[in-house]
């Protein structure tokens, strides 16, 4: 069985967020919820300043606190290492979200995609209401709703349950890369089987000294980061006193 993992090459990443927007799109993620996200930081004082960007997503930890704490096993591990959620079993206690050290789990506080439920019309007779638009297109929830997401998870999760990144398990099972990987224009995301000795993931992890988020917690995350967002050159110096 494969054990999926992702390497994120920060040097290639330009912080454009294509991953996050494509993820929204692929997984029908409602507004306010970010399966794919980032941690940014502006470092330094003018004029010695840079802005840094670390893409984030579910780490698909080996020892996942969210899985450990879930009372009903709604949050569970798949054989391929993916941390998966089953909203049918979710009682909405939010303990996984509370437990996740990485802030990647979100709760559906409301019925999702509310924007598209409105029946307000901007110009009477001249424009349509969001609801009318969705109906006319014959789509569910949103006009650009992706039904393929529904293969392994409700294509849109109901209110009252949590949701998070699934490494696009519905795509991976078909031999397709997770959408964020496909959509990354910088090729900063490398996906594959960490157990296979010749996978690109394995090769990269052997080449660099990868780091992971909050490693000291012992969760054994499977999203690895290599290189630096800004590998800037500077003239050699010994400083001075």
């Amino acid at each position: 069985m494969s054990r999926y993992a992702m390497v994120i090459d920060l040097q290639r990443c330009v912080g454009c967020g294509s991953c996050s927007i494509a993820c929204r799109n692929e997984n029908n993620v409602p507004d306010g919820i970010y399966w794919s996200n980032k941690i940014t930081e502006t470092v330094g004082t003018f004029p010695n300043v840079r802005h840094h960007y670390i893409p984030t997503l579910c780490n698909h930890c080996e020892y996942a606190p969210c899985v450990r704490g879930c009372p009903t096993k709604a949050m569970h591990k798949l054989d391929n290492g993916i941390t998966m959620h089953d909203p049918k079993k979710c009682i909405g206690c939010k303990y996984c979200e509370f437990n996740c050290p990485y802030g990647v789990i979100y709760f559906n506080w409301k019925e999702p995609h509310q924007f598209w439920k409105s029946n307000k019309v901007l110009l009477k007779g001249g424009t349509s209401s969001p609801q009318e638009e969705v109906e006319k297109i014959g789509a569910k929830k949103t006009p650009y709703f992706n039904p393929e997401r529904g293969a392994t998870l409700p294509a849109s999760r109901p209110k009252g349950v949590v949701e998070k990144c699934t490494f696009c398990d519905h795509r991976v099972r078909k031999g397709l890369l997770p959408r964020c990987v496909e959509a990354c224009p910088a090729n900063a995301r490398i996906f594959g089987d960490i157990k296979a000795p010749d996978s690109d993931v394995t090769k990269l992890l052997g080449k660099f000294r990868p780091f992971r988020l909050r490693e000291q917690l012992g969760t054994n995350p499977h999203v690895f980061y290599v290189r630096d967002f800004n590998p800037a050159q500077y003239r050699p110096t010994k400083g001075g006193v």
């Binding site: 450990r68 704490g69 879930c70 009372p71 009903t72 979710c90 009682i91 939010k94 303990y95 349950v161």
Partner: peptide
């Protein structure tokens, strides 16, 4: 009234997770 999906509560009995303090608590 705090739980999002109290209607799924029966899973506590059918899909127990012994490592979960919430399960033990329930």
């Amino acid at each position: 009234l705090e739980l999002g999906s109290v209607q799924h509560m029966f899973w506590v009995f059918f899909s127990p997770n012994l490592s979960s303090p919430i399960w033990w608590l329930a």
